[in-house]
């Protein structure tokens, strides 16, 4: 999901950079206020830990392998603000030392994987925690991956690199699968930490105000990225329609005068509706899987 240089145009790169800087600035202030002095080195070592964890591959299917992103893992272990700082540091080093992810896209990458993923993931984790910590973490891990992928698709579409109608289903579809691995490993790691050192997971709950601010930052960021689609959306779809040969059909009926016939045309409204439906269905299925996983892990612990 690391966007290389050359994929984002100037306005998207700068816009994402500004939003990311605001998010990281908020996290730094928050972390400085909440973190006791003896925890400052923990941020750096935890960043190195996330880095090392990302290098351990796990088998997926057919000889391919995936690896952890770790945004939710960091958020659950350290809290959302510290997780944002840690993930930002990881992405900066990946960009400058590994050349993984471009410098011009650094803002966008930080926004997707270091701000959006841990903050949304942590919010979902806290909302779903009554169901059980492990299940909540697995579900949050999956959601954070998918949300970051959607935002990435949005940035690519906004830059005019990949049409929204192509980028959204492709990125979301792939990452709905990758997210399962992310959720599973997040849950397994948390279960292991829980077994070895349960006191590491018992942090004092953050004040409610912090989460509200976080929500606001996310809503703002999303609004900035999603709002332009109100106008660029039909454009992307038209391109797909043209590609698939539907434009000739659509041209016969005026687009804006009567929207109803358009909805009956296959291919115009249905890819988006179908993707949205698939998304809802996938979310429900993953939530169920998370519950099952948590139950099996809990059963293991007792035996």
């Amino acid at each position: 999901m690391h966007i290389p240089d050359g994929f984002l145009d100037v306005k998207t790169a700068v816009g994402a950079g500004v939003v990311a800087a605001a998010g990281v600035g908020w996290a730094l202030r928050q972390a400085r206020r909440q973190l006791p002095a003896q925890k400052v080195p923990l941020l750096g070592v935890a960043a190195a830990f996330i880095f090392a964890a990302q290098m351990l591959n796990f088998p997926v299917a057919g000889g391919t392998s995936g690896h952890l992103i770790g945004a939710v893992l960091a958020a659950v272990l350290l809290g959302p603000a510290a997780a944002v700082v840690v993930m930002t540091a990881v992405l900066v080093v990946q960009c400058f030392l590994f050349q993984d992810g471009g410098v011009s896209a650094l803002g966008a990458n930080i926004f997707n994987m270091a701000v959006l993923a841990p903050v949304i993931g942590c919010g979902i984790y806290r909302l779903a925690r009554p169901v059980g910590r492990i299940a909540a973490a697995a579900f949050a891990g999956w959601c954070s991956t998918v949300v970051a992928a959607i935002s990435c698709a949005g940035q690519l579409a906004l830059s005019g690199t990949v049409a929204w109608g192509v980028a959204f289903p492709a990125m979301t579809g792939v990452h709905m699968l990758i997210g399962i691995g992310e959720g599973l490993i997040t849950a397994l790691v948390l279960a292991a930490v829980w077994k070895a050192r349960p006191e590491l997971l018992n942090q004092p709950a953050a004040p409610a105000g912090g989460l509200a601010v976080a929500g606001l930052v996310v809503a703002l960021g999303l609004a900035l990225f999603v709002a332009p689609f109100a106008c660029s959306w039909p454009d992307g779809l038209e391109k797909v329609a043209e590609h698939l040969g539907f434009d000739a059909k659509a041209a016969k009926t005026p687009l804006l005068a009567s929207p109803v016939p358009d909805y009956e045309l296959p291919g115009i409204g249905s890819p988006v509706v179908a993707t949205a439906l698939a998304g809802v269905l996938g979310t429900v299925v993953v939530f169920g899987l998370s519950l099952l996983l948590a139950r099996s892990l809990a059963a293991n612990k007792e035996s």
Partner: peptide
């Protein structure tokens, strides 16, 4: 793998 990563985190906090 989950256990290895979990242990790695425990060791990381001790190292910190």
């Amino acid at each position: 793998l989950g256990t290895v990563i979990g242990q790695l985190f425990v060791r990381s906090t001790e190292r910190a």
